[in-house]
């Protein structure tokens, strides 16, 4: 009977909202984080990314198949979506919790958008050198910039009498057609231009005191999405906290009112 099938399909869909599924997925997440971190300590971040953090399937000890971080994230997303549809109680006093869960949905979604569209390159220039071709992390040549960058000067400052770096600064010139302008890229102060972001990443000293500077160059979509998600989560936590305090106050007042009678 179609009626019954419909009922059971919706029931099955509803079971996707199950709290127990949430718990299992979160435990899996915990396990993957531990495994990935341990792997990273042993064979580096790149290997850990490929095996655990950006994979759909993870082979524990190379044998036991487990869902990778992408799978767990996707399942959590579905679980959250189902919860938003059927489990969350849409009442004012739950506003914080609701916002929290929607913020998480957006956070996971933005993770997917960023990791699917992000391109990360490197650009190494010696002092006085100009360039526009970017290399990939594995050394292969990647994309080409729509403008030319010239490294005018690289400066490294140490805390006096130590080897502790105080700051790294690269002064560059940007040439687009006939237009030229200068900019400074330093630690924690990236240069953003035409969708590319340049970060001071490394430096090297060659003979004759000539220095070279390496920038990591990032291009991709959705860079601002986590900011919105963070704002939602922050607001959600704040609202939920206020609601909890309000509930606690009510509870405290109730017995007092009783004794006044």
């Amino acid at each position: 009977m179609p009626d019954k099938t419909g009922f059971s399909i919706s029931r099955r869909l509803r079971s996707l909202a199950s709290l127990k599924l949430t718990v299992v997925l979160l435990l899996l997440l915990c396990f993957l984080v531990i495994a990935g971190t341990a792997l990273q300590a042993e064979s580096g971040l790149y290997a850990a990314q490929r095996a655990v953090f950006s994979s759909w399937l993870f082979l524990l000890f190379g044998v036991v198949p487990l869902p990778g971080m992408l799978t767990v994230a996707l399942l959590l997303f579905i679980n959250l979506l189902a919860a938003a549809a059927w489990r969350l109680q849409y009442r004012w006093r739950r506003a914080g919790l609701i916002l929290l869960h929607y913020g998480l949905l957006l956070l996971i979604a933005s993770g997917f958008v960023i990791s699917l569209t992000a391109r990360e390159y490197f650009l190494t220039l010696r002092e006085g050198e100009s360039g526009r071709s970017l290399t990939l992390a594995d050394g292969r040549s990647g994309a080409s910039l729509p403008f030319t960058l010239t490294l005018l000067d690289f400066e490294k400052a140490l805390h006096p009498g130590t080897d502790i770096p105080k700051s790294f600064t690269s002064r560059v010139e940007i040439r687009e057609g006939q237009a030229r302008r200068r900019a400074v890229i330093s630690m924690n102060r990236p240069l953003r231009l035409r969708g590319y972001t340049f970060y001071q990443s490394a430096y090297a000293e060659e003979e004759e005191g000539r220095e070279s500077s390496t920038f990591s160059v990032v291009q991709g979509a959705g860079r601002r999405l986590p900011y919105f998600a963070s704002a939602m989560l922050f607001l959600g936590l704040l609202l939920h906290w206020l609601a909890m305090i309000a509930a606690a106050m009510k509870k405290r007042q109730a017995p007092g009112a009783g004794s006044a009678l």
Partner: peptide, 14 residues
């Protein structure tokens, strides 16, 4: 995450 994005170019890096 926001600080890391502002200064290192990624929100999250494992």
């Amino acid at each position: 995450g926001i600080w890391a994005d502002l200064s290192w170019g990624r929100f999250w890096g494992w």
